[in-house]
């Protein structure tokens, strides 16, 4: 690591102010940022820790949706969302290992938008709303490509509002080394249609598989996916699998998610 200052504000307002300093960077659970700093791949002058801000914490029902504070850890979601949104709680329960789950936060995951992260799939498939210190952003507008989001410089994810589907399931196929998704599908069934989000597969990051959504909205059955394929051309190809393999897995994971619900 290079040397940096650290600030620990106790309110979002103070955090935003601190982030106005030159080369300041927010620090939430640090599951990506700390290894990046240790590898000397980032050189912030000030780290603004968000973990001491009470208003970023919590899992609760608000106006029929599940609100999760941006600074809430995966472990907390795993426990506190188990009754209100079990599919999301199960997703949280399978992120990383206990150490990761006890440090990593939902806001950090969404702000980073790793193309292989789990939470973006849940947010996109659930049609969640991302709340920040200055506005609300629909998930459909929020994810803008690999490690890219609609967030502005210094903007903090304060919370996420998840509409609760009638049923949902997250089916993950892990990359054997990192245990991130190689491909994972989140299927959410609402009264007005089905949403399907895929993570791990695309060079563009998380995306909605609209053909699958249309077919499943028509008839919610794994067989409805027959004949639907994705193009491997723009899929990630690496040591762990080609684009064609990932495209194939998108179908398998989506099908299995539907079977788990049906």
């Amino acid at each position: 690591m290079y040397e940096f200052e650290i600030e620990r504000p106790s309110s979002v307002a103070d955090a935003v102010k601190a982030l106005g300093q030159e080369d300041a960077q927010p620090l939430s659970g640090g599951q990506t940022l700390i290894p990046t700093l240790k590898a000397r791949l980032a050189m912030p002058s000030v780290l603004v820790s968000l973990t001491g801000i009470k208003e970023l914490q919590g899992v609760e029902m608000r106006d029929g949706a599940l609100w999760i504070g941006g600074g809430t850890t995966h472990a907390t979601v795993m426990h506190d969302a188990a009754e209100s949104y079990p599919a999301l709680a199960k997703l949280a329960a399978r992120i990383g290992d206990p150490a990761v789950r006890n440090r990593g936060t939902i806001g950090g995951s969404l702000a980073n938008n790793d193309p292989s992260a789990c939470y973006p799939a849940a947010a996109l498939a659930s049609g969640a709303t991302i709340e920040t210190d200055r506005r609300e952003i629909a998930a459909d507008d929020y994810f803008q490509g690999m490690f890219t989001t609609a967030l502005e410089e210094g903007e903090i994810v304060t919370g996420v509002r998840f509409p609760i589907p009638q049923a949902a399931h997250y089916e993950k196929f892990i990359q054997p080394a990192s245990r991130f998704p190689l491909v994972a599908a989140y299927v959410a069934q609402f009264s007005d249609g089905v949403r399907v989000a895929i993570t791990g597969a695309s060079n563009e990051g998380v995306f909605r598989w609209t053909e699958a959504e249309a077919a499943l909205s028509e008839r919610f059955d794994a067989d409805a996916l027959d004949g639907l394929t994705l193009d491997g051309g723009n899929m990630i190809g690496d040591l762990h699998g080609s684009g064609a393999y990932r495209a194939h897995l998108c179908g398998v994971m989506t099908r299995r998610a539907v079977q788990a619900i049906a």
Binding site: P176, A177, S178, D238, L239, H240
Partner: peptide
């Protein structure tokens, strides 16, 4: 290419 546990599967 497999220079860390992100890519080297133990």
């Amino acid at each position: 290419l497999s220079a860390s546990y992100m890519d080297y599967a133990m």
